[in-house]
Design a protein around this nucleic acid. Sequence first.
DNA 1: CATCTGAGTTCTAAAATAGAACCCTGCATC
DNA 2: GATGCAGGGTTCTATTTTAGAACTCAGATG
Lengths: 169, 169
Amino acid sequence: MCVMPAVMDPRELDSAVCSIARTMELIGHPWTLLVLRDLFNGVRRFDELADHLGIARNVLTRRLAGLVDAGLVEKVSYREPGQRARHEYRLTRAGWDLRPVLLAVMAYGDDHLAGPDGPPLRVEHADCGGQVLVRLECANGHPVDSDSRLRAIPGPGAGFVRESDASAH
Amino acid sequence: MCVMPAVMDPRELDSAVCSIARTMELIGHPWTLLVLRDLFNGVRRFDELADHLGIARNVLTRRLAGLVDAGLVEKVSYREPGQRARHEYRLTRAGWDLRPVLLAVMAYGDDHLAGPDGPPLRVEHADCGGQVLVRLECANGHPVDSDSRLRAIPGPGAGFVRESDASAH
DNA sequence: CATCTGAGTTCTAAAATAGAACCCTGCATC
DNA sequence: GATGCAGGGTTCTATTTTAGAACTCAGATG
């Protein structure tokens, strides 16, 4: 991604065969990322999620079902002693692995959309209290900052726009 | 975000006063992230975007207008010698700064959703050819990996659920 | 003057969200 | 054993969006 100086024409790549497209099918529906945020934050029960998010309950039902289907979340029944059985929704490992995505999105909002008071939330390393930062670097250890040039090349799983599609038009 | 052991109750925070919520208002609509991906990849003209993405043209119109409104994209008219005037959509600096978000989303898809052939696209540092990685680390230089515990605490711009809201219920 | 291309706009139909009301199951209580 | 209530949804209608295709319009081209 990013300025591909004559390396190849990105329009030849099948737009749907793309890790961004695939990931957005899981987390790209309205509310989904906020549901995940709340799950990360330990809000786990249906009613709590509905109340805190202000999402319509039927939509929340669909989102949670989608997340469970996708394997990002699991629904667990539990019972506290003397209490009735309850359900909670927990991140699976695959859901947990979205943490860098959430943090990257949050970092963007902190940098570009915070009010004059500053960012709404501070996320820190529990061990040392240092603020968590999202950094890009390359496999050779070089830092990749905002004006570093990157190059995208088709990987082994790339899909190309088929001849038939191109000519059919 | 992430496991807040009795530090505070995340339900007391206003769900909408959140950098994730704010950012998703800009980039959370269907297709938006794919439009941005194509813009990063140098696909800039309306027809090219419509053809490559397979998005309905009226939706593309709305998404581009939204991105321009949000200041992530600008619409530029230009004319190649001997050609008619054309428009192109270019990322602004604020749009460009979404690169880590796109890369984090892509990295997730590469890790969890790639087929047996491997990831569709490889993004490398133009200077050295090393693959670009999204890393978390804390301000004190510690690496933050998947099982590092993080703590979220209200920042200066936090919004709390108002008494009136809580009691009105 | 007829055609083509770029860049949309304008329709209609299908799908999704918003909001509110309703339902059902287990406990707890009177 | 009827009542109440909380948790966890479902069902309903109204409103927005998206999907898909057709149509417009201006400037270059022949």
